[in-house]
Simulated scan of single mutants.
Amino acid sequence: MANVLVVDDSSTMREIVSSYLRKNGFEVTTATDGRDGIAQLRADPAIRLVVSDVNMPIMDGLMMAEKIRTELDNKSVHIIMLTTEDNPLMRERGKAIGVTGWIVKPFRGEAVLGPFKRLCGLQP
């Protein structure tokens, strides 16, 4: 059972983020877009943190976040957007949906390691 779900349509980004997290004690599963992410969440109730890109085909990250909060009625999973998008209006939309945090790429694992561990309950 995973405690982190990494959702990105870029296989390179999925590998960078998931490899770093695995090396640092996380159980990670991945998804290629928002629809796949929803399916992974339904299949694995142990997921505590979703790290997702915003711009993806089929279902984008914000739509996925909205469905997590409404259709899945999951208010407990933390959702972090890891994206190139730095638009304040998009951030506000994310916040209104229930996105926990917003990180602008590039991914700097050392900067998020502590907060991610706390969100997953891996450290106090």
Rank of each mutant, 00 (worst) to 15 (best):
P88N: 04
S11R: 12
L5T: 08
T32P: 01
V4A: 06
G98K: 02
F116T: 11
L62R: 07
K117Y: 11
G109A: 06
A39N: 10
E71F: 05
G94F: 04
V4D: 08
A65T: 04
F26R: 09
M13R: 09
D36K: 01
V28R: 05
M13Y: 10
V7A: 08
A96Q: 14
P106L: 00
L122D: 13
V50R: 01
T32G: 09
T30M: 07
I79Q: 06
D9H: 06
N55P: 04
I58P: 12
L49R: 03
K75F: 08
V4I: 14
R118P: 04
L113H: 12
L113R: 14
E71D: 15
S76D: 15
E85Q: 11
W102C: 00
I38L: 14
N74L: 04
A96F: 14
A39D: 15
R35D: 13
T83E: 11
M59S: 06
S11L: 13
E85W: 02
T70D: 13
K67A: 15
L122C: 07
L49G: 00
D86I: 07
E92C: 10
S18K: 10
I58L: 06
G114I: 08
T83S: 09
M64D: 06
P124A: 14
I80E: 15
G114W: 10
V112K: 15
D8H: 05
R22Q: 15
P45K: 12
V51F: 05
A111T: 10
A43T: 03
A39K: 13
P88Q: 10
H78R: 15
R35I: 00
L82H: 02
P57Y: 07
I58H: 12
S18G: 06
V54R: 05
K105Q: 04
G98I: 06
P45D: 09
V104S: 04
K95N: 13
E66K: 14
R35Q: 15
L89V: 12
T100K: 02
K23T: 14
V112M: 15
V4E: 10
E110G: 11
K105G: 01
G121A: 07
G34W: 01
W102T: 07
P106G: 05
D44T: 06
R118A: 07
K117E: 07
M90A: 14
I16S: 11
A65Y: 00
D9S: 03
G98R: 07
G109T: 04
C120W: 09
I79K: 07
V77E: 12
S76M: 12
G109V: 02
D73E: 13
S76F: 11
I80G: 05
V99A: 09
R48E: 03
P45F: 02
V50C: 08
E85C: 13
V77I: 08
L113C: 03
G114E: 15
G109N: 11
L21P: 08
V77S: 03
I38K: 02
V104R: 03
